Every structure is written in C-alpha cells, then in structure tokens.
Amino acid sequence: MRRFRFTAYVTSLLLATGLALTGAAAAQASPQLAATGGYVALGDSYSSGVGAGSYISSSGSCSRSTKAYPYLWNAAHAPSSFAFTACSGATTDDVLANQLGSLGSATGLVSITIGGNDAGFADVMTTCVLSSDSGCLSRINTAKAYVDSTLPGKLDNVYNAISTRAPSARVVVLGYPRFYMLGTTCLGLSETKRAAINGAADYLDAAIAKRAADHGFTFGDVRSTFAGHEICSGSSWLHSLNWLNVGESYHPTAAGQSGGYLPVLTSAA
C-alpha cells in the first residue's frame, strides 16, 4: 500500500508538471496587410508546438517547433517579418510579461492560443486520470467557474494589449480541440470522463470566442478540423497519455498542427 501511494504521488506530480499546456478596435487589417506585414505568433504550447517534435534548440523550455502552425504559416506566406514568441506553459500573465515585445505598427497578423493554463488544464487532466468520475467532474466544474468569473478579464487584458501595440494587425484567436471521440471502445478514461473533458473544451472555447468577438478579433475554431482525429478515433492528431514524454500528452501531433491548426489560421488570416 505504501508503494502504491508513493507511485500515485509521483504520477500526480509528473502529470501536474508535464501536462501544463507545455509546460482592439473592431476594424481589422485586410488579409493583404496580414500577408505582407509582419507576423507575430503568441500563446501557449498549442501554438509553440509541444507534441509536434522538431523543437528549435534556441527556444529552450518554450519548446517551439518547426512543425507548429505559426512556423508552417510563415514558411508558406513569407511575411515581411516573423516573431515566434509562443511558449510552453504560458498563461495570460506570461503573454503580457514576455511575449508582446515584437508587436508594432508594422504588424499585419497576430495569432494566439491562450487561456487553457489559466483555467487549470494540467490539474484537470491530472485529476481526471487519477481520480473517480465524480472527482473528475468536480474539478471540471471548478475550472468552469474560473472560466465564468476570472478568465474573461484575463483575456481582455491580453487582447487590449495586443490592440494597443499592433493597432493595424489582424488578430486570429485560435481555440482548443475536443480531446476524445465518444462512443468507441477505447482503453483509458471512462466515457463519463471523456464526455466531461470534451464539454469543458467546448465551454472554454465559447468563452474565448466571446471575448475575441467583443474585441473585433477573428476566432479560429479547430474543433471541426480535428473532428474524426480525436483520441480514440484510430487516427488521432492528439497525443494520449505518454509516459515516455509526459509533457507531450494531450497536445497536437505534427499532423494536428498541419492538418488541424494551420488550415484554420490560413483561412482566417
């Protein structure tokens, strides 16, 4: 029993540290300006490319990947400049403190994924992996309460700062995919947990989309592009729990970046 408790503790610690999303004015710029002006890619690990491999050594713990959708969009469109500042584990406060320095009057396009770490993504997944159905649902309800009460103001702070620093930019706020295909035989979490996690992703996306729209930004919904490629689909573009590299768990694969995120940014930009 003592060994079991220690193992469970280590498992929880690994998940909590490794699963972190690794760790304006209404008038927007025209698509032509977005293509010819500078491009700045902000956000958390879903933008930095954790899970896609091919990490840029100089990015250190931010784990920026050459297979991440910002890098791929830059390669395909050759904007006048490219600043890739998205960082594994970033929260809204981290974006404000560390990622906005490249924004300016010449910025034509900004992309960002943010909010998942603020809402406690890592702890939600840790709880749902290690606890009962009721424990998982309770933690998700706590996260939803945060999304209702606190996250909108946090997002406003980031969006206001982007608009102030890059007033001519087209801003594309990308959301998060649903994690699981439901109604299939799949080892791991119960169907109850999977459905609740998907519901939480929808809840977070709805909140982010509302704040983006209120700032005149474009919301890029990736749930449609990931449909059919969720965990348990047999053709997943998302890593499930990966004990060899815990930090990549529940993050898009290279195919998820190129097939799930890139088309949405390309369409919105």
Rank of each mutant, 00 (worst) to 15 (best):
E191W: 00
L204H: 00
C87G: 06
S80N: 09
T11D: 11
A213R: 04
G259Y: 01
V171M: 06
T126M: 13
L13V: 14
T17C: 05
I112V: 15
S61P: 02
T225C: 03
D94W: 12
L137P: 00
T17N: 11
D118K: 02
Y146F: 15
G37W: 03
T218L: 11
G256F: 06
P252G: 08
P177C: 09
T266M: 00
V173Q: 01
S102N: 14
L19I: 14
D156V: 10
T22P: 12
L187T: 15
A207M: 01
A27T: 15
S249G: 13
Y69G: 10
G153N: 12
T126A: 15
S88G: 15
L130V: 08
H77A: 04
C128I: 10
F226T: 09
I112Q: 00
S111R: 08
D44M: 09
I140Q: 08
C128K: 05
G43C: 09
G18W: 02
R178L: 01
Y159I: 06
S30K: 04
Y250H: 03
V147N: 00
T85L: 15
L174E: 11
S224T: 14
Y250W: 14
V173P: 00
T127Y: 05
R178F: 00
T218G: 01
G175H: 04
S235R: 13
G53M: 12
D118Y: 10
S47I: 05
Y261A: 03
G60M: 10
L244N: 14
A254D: 14
A68I: 04
S12W: 13
V95C: 01
L182A: 03
T126V: 07
R194I: 02
V264G: 07
L241E: 02
Y46L: 14
A41L: 13
L182F: 02
G116D: 05
S111N: 04
L130I: 10
A26R: 13
G51A: 11
W237A: 07
C87F: 04
T218M: 03
T91N: 12
L21Y: 05
S47T: 15
P167Y: 06
N98E: 01
S149F: 01
G216R: 02
L96E: 08
T184Y: 12
G38R: 06
L14N: 11
S59C: 12
A27Y: 02
G23V: 14
A27M: 11
Y261M: 11
A41V: 13
A27Q: 14
T85S: 15
L155Q: 07
G188L: 09
R3N: 11
A75N: 15
G234H: 10
S134Q: 14
L238K: 08
V50G: 12
V158C: 06
K193H: 07
A27E: 13
L21S: 12
Y203H: 12
S105Q: 13
S249I: 06
P31S: 04
T127A: 13
A8I: 11
E248N: 12
A145R: 07
A76W: 08
D214N: 14
L109S: 11
Y55L: 12
D123G: 10
W73C: 07
D156A: 12
K193W: 10
P167M: 07
Q257V: 11
Y9K: 07
A34Q: 05
V95L: 06
R139V: 01
I112Y: 03
N74V: 09
A200T: 00
C87E: 04
Y9A: 15
S258L: 08
G216W: 05
G228S: 08
